[in-house]
Every structure is written in C-alpha cells, then in structure tokens.
Design a protein around this nucleic acid. Sequence first.
DNA 1: CCGTTCCTTATTGTATACGCTCCCAATATG
DNA 2: CATATTGGGAGCGTATACAATAAGGAACGG
Lengths: 245, 245
Amino acid sequence: MSRSQAVSESVADGQDQKRDSRPKSKGLDAIYRSISDAIIEHRLKPGARLREDALSDVFGVSRTGIRKVLQRLALEQLVTLTPRRGASVNRPSVEEAKDVFEARRMVECGLMEVAARRVTDADVKELRKMAQEEKQALRNREQRVAIKLSAAFHARLAELSGNKTLSEFVGQLCSRSSLILAVYGNSGHLGCESHDHENLVDYLCAGEGKKASSFMERHLKSIEASLSFVEESDETPDLRDIFSV
Amino acid sequence: MSRSQAVSESVADGQDQKRDSRPKSKGLDAIYRSISDAIIEHRLKPGARLREDALSDVFGVSRTGIRKVLQRLALEQLVTLTPRRGASVNRPSVEEAKDVFEARRMVECGLMEVAARRVTDADVKELRKMAQEEKQALRNREQRVAIKLSAAFHARLAELSGNKTLSEFVGQLCSRSSLILAVYGNSGHLGCESHDHENLVDYLCAGEGKKASSFMERHLKSIEASLSFVEESDETPDLRDIFSV
DNA sequence: CCGTTCCTTATTGTATACGCTCCCAATATG
DNA sequence: CATATTGGGAGCGTATACAATAAGGAACGG
C-alpha cells in the first residue's frame, strides 16, 4: 500500500512539472520526457512500480499511449518490463553498471578528439554556462538538479562530434548512469567533481583532443571508483550459498 | 498500386520463413525477428512501406502487436515512422551512413582489445565456423545470406567483450550497416572481403589485441570506401539547381 | 500455530471499433 | 487548357472492452 502511494506521489510530481506547459498539447513526447526526467532526477527511485492505470489517470491519456511510452523507456533501459507484472524503474545490476561505464569510457573518450576539432566558440560558451549552472546547483545542495545537469553536460559534449548516432547513444548511457548513481552512489559526494567539467571545456577550447580524452577517462574512472558496489539482496537470498551447503 | 503489391509480396516472403518455425508459438519476438531479418537480408528494400493491416493479416496478430514491433524497429532505426503515413523501411542518408561507420570504428576497434584478452578456444572455433559459412555463401552467390552472416559475425565478435550494452549497440550498428549496403553498396563486390574475417580471428586467437584493432579499422574503412555515396534524388529534385537558375 | 490451498482481485495482454487526417482523383471553373 | 477545390478512400491514432494470469488474502487442515 504505502509503496503504491509513494509511486502516486512521485507521479504527481511529474504531473506538476508538466502542468507548467500545456496540459494536453503535444501529449506524447511530453509524457516520455516527464517520466524520463523524474527517473533521472531520482524522483522516481529504482524499483518503483509504474502502473499503467495510474499513469493514464495522471497524464489524461489512455493506457495505449502510456504503454507506448513505457515500451520506449524499456528499450532505453530506464524501466524494466516484467511480462505479467508491468513496468518498474530499472535497478541496474553491478554488471550492468560496469558495462555502462566501460561503454562510456570507450565512446566518450573517443569522441573528445573529434569534438576538439569541431568545437566552436559558441559551443564553448554554452558548455561553460552549463558547467556553471551545475556547480551552482551543487552549492545549493540541489542534488537532483545537479545530477540532471551533469548528464546533460556529458550528452551535450557528445553532440559536439556531429555524430547523431553516437551522441544519442551517449545520451542513453548518461541517463542510465544517473540510475546507477541512485543505486550505488554515496549520497555524500556526487559523481562528478565540480571543476572537472570546466577543465574538460578548457582542453577542448585549446584544441587539446588527446588531453581532453585522457582527462575524460580519469574523470569517468573516478566517478566509477566513487561507487559502492554492494549487491542488494533484492533477489532470492541464495540460502544455499549463505549457509555454505 | 503496383508499389503496394510489391510490398505485399515482400511481406509474404517474410511469412514463408516464419512458417518454418511454429506459426503462433511465441508470437511477439518471432515477428520482430522475421521483419528484422527480412530487412537485413534486403528482401524488404529501403523505402518499402510496411502497412499495419497487411502485416497483421500476414502474421495473424492484431495491429496492436504489429505497432509494438514497428515501434521497436523504429527505435533501432531500421524503419522510419512517419506521423500519419505509417512505417517504411529506413533509407539511410549519407550523413547517417557515415555516422554509423564512424561509430563502428570507434566501438568495434576498442572492443577488439578487450575481446583479445577474453576470447576462448570455443569462441575461436565458433567464429571460424561462422567465417567459413559466410565465405561459402559468397561462393554460392547467396548475397542475402552472406550479408546477414557478415553482420552476425561482427555482432558475435562484439559479444566476446562480455559487455552487453556495447554488444547490443554493435548489433544495431551492424543491422543498420546492412541497410546502408543496400542503398550505397555496389552489387559487384560485397562489403566484407571474404578472408578479412578469418584474419581477424587469427589475431584474436594469438592475443594480438592491438593488431586486431588496427586490422578492424582498415577493414571497416575499406567497406566504407567501397560504398558509392550518391545522394538519391528521392527528395524534391531541386529544379532550380538542376537548371542553374 | 504454521503451512497449504483455493479464491478473489488487481493489473497487464490483446483485439476491435471509431474518428481523424492525409492523399489522390475527379470535376468544375476561370 | 490549366488550376483549384472538393469528395472519396485508405490508413493511422486513440480509446475501450474483454480475457488471461499472477499476486495476495482468507479459510481450512495438519
């Protein structure tokens, strides 16, 4: 009971932010973004159930549309779609978390060299602004906002490459990283050090692709190192193993 | 008229191959694979329309299920979903093609070094077998089969890394590459040289990750170089430009 | 008092029906 | 004769209804 109530509240939050724009104007994509944002900002925590009825009530569209959105979120690994149990916010396994960070290291570092060749002054300006906002959010203790901005920064960085395929992929990886932080992150110090992003922009601005790349690698490794990979005992607690039979 | 008829035939082909397995056993995923395979093997050519009614007739499920499958295919960029026009097999633009190959170079080359460390004897055996089958298909002039096997080989190679996220991504890139070959490939010589894949396995087997990586880069670049990037005049034929007004 | 089994209920899976939009063609008019 | 406008048809978008299934609770037996 209390769990489903919590979900309703979280969903209601999503609705609140949606009410800022037109309630029913573009409908489809807006719902996707609402839920996606709620997950990335940890307003919907890993494991939270997303009942189709509740969502359709909240957003004022029928279950058909909700299902469409949920399916998309599932393909992006933000929600898990259990056959007859419905949707819930994905709780990444340790293995998945490591895979995501390995993928990020491979792709984002590679992209840095491309980005350094293509970055423009306007880009630099925008990136610095984003880094500033993120730092500001961190100072204000608005972790939720900071997490979202951090993901947005990395995603924007990837867009500099001009490669749509790769930047979309990085965007997904960043969203998933946000989930990973929710599960394995120490709430004490957030993933990204506040000045790291500014350093990255400096390297790019100077055209130092190689240095930007290796800095990115250190950056990502330090984030990963800051995680505490304790396997949650959510699954059947392996009694055989525990009692060493 | 003639166009839609052609589509019906192509769809019927997909049905034929499906009849080999159980017609309605697992339903959902089987349909996805049917259509996906048909696209990858070029039995459904870029631009072919995929009407929901026709597909639901052919596969014996209602439009609901078909829509689900089409949506998934759209997210993987195999089909294009135009708002009120329905689905059609994606016709990759030149830009998209270059993006895909850039992504492949970045990811697949990076994965080779990981794969070289993890590859087992059983893997090598399997890969050699796959390379053999592909060569055989090429000798038999079964281009469709060869294209599919080639994509499967690259995808399997990526799986060696043990990184699910990255190997899924590579799988998608390979599928899209198949589409790209359909549009920009010269039917004369297929993308992959027949012995390249065997060489790759040799390097991996010897644990030569670096060499495998650079060989992969040459391999992918040579495929890309074999494409003829002539922009199809599918869009408004630029009359002003043609007559230089 | 605990375990088991059956039943109820809640929630998803699937199909179908209706409405709307867009394309195409035919016809009428300038 | 060319062009614009309107009517028809085809196909997608959305909602709703029904069926199937698994989870949770209650009752009964050990």
